[in-house]
Amino acid sequence: MAGLKELRNRIGSVKNTQKITSAMKMVAAAKLRRAQEQAEASRPYAERMERMLGSLAAANKSQAGGPKLLSGTGSDQVQLVVVATADRGLCGAFNSSIVREARRFIESKLADGKEVKILCVGRKGRDQLRRIYGNRIVATLEDVSKPRPSFEKANEIGLRLLEMLEAGEFDVATLFYARFKSAISQIVTRQQLIPFAVEEVEAEAAQASSSLVYDFEPEQEDILRQLLPRNLSVQIYRALLENAASEHGARMSAMDNATRNAGDMIKRLTQVYNRTRQAAITKELIEIISAKEAM
């Protein structure tokens, strides 16, 4: 049986831990709200971008040999996997579940005999992937969401992908991130970035714009050529925002659990502590009484 002093120390340290976890929970909750607002605010742009792209792509469909971003390089031999995770841990299974999905995808591609390259966005994902696919990681970007995801950062990533595409370093780019559903539920999502999958957008935009015949200024292809890289950045930006919200959500619920666990632990330890204390008192009393009787 542990001594009274040790128990007291133990309870003290668990209490401290609890204070920290509950503070982290509050911070995560505040950040989550802000991240959600930001995600909300970015939606109109993405929606209108999609609408525009939809009508452009619909008009452009007839022509073959569109830009690489839309029609691909004609091969799928080299796969680039972009894994967006958090830079920090202590957020439950958030990072691990993204990495797990990405790994499954990578394994299936490897099994098909494809070449896989990995671009890590966020430190935690890299740490986990490095152990298995160390030599496949082409680059890691850190602190992209610090203090919060900015469009500029997303744009940088987009430009980087473009550069790599132009240099012929990959054929297909797939992005992994966690879509925010609620504070307790984040869904790991796989999205093909390059070539951009317009199909689902096209369908709804086509009926909306079928009655309209747009004029293009400058030429349609020129606009498309400008719009596609922009759209790439927007998609990445959106993913970063979703990821940030998911991260804070995951951290909030993880810290909530931790706080509750600490509470339970304190309760149990306090009980043991009191029992031990009482036992010690009883023992002392018995000793005093029996000593007296012996006299």
């Binding site: 605010a41 970015s42 109109p44 742009y45 209108r48 469009f151 997303a154 200024e217 400058p218 927007v234």
Partner: peptide, 27 residues
Amino acid sequence: FELVSPEELLISEDVAMVVVPGEEGDF
């Protein structure tokens, strides 16, 4: 008229006219 940036919806209102600096001249 709507003016949107990636970060937010800046303006959304009904106006009489807007002049936009297009690639090939203002319109």
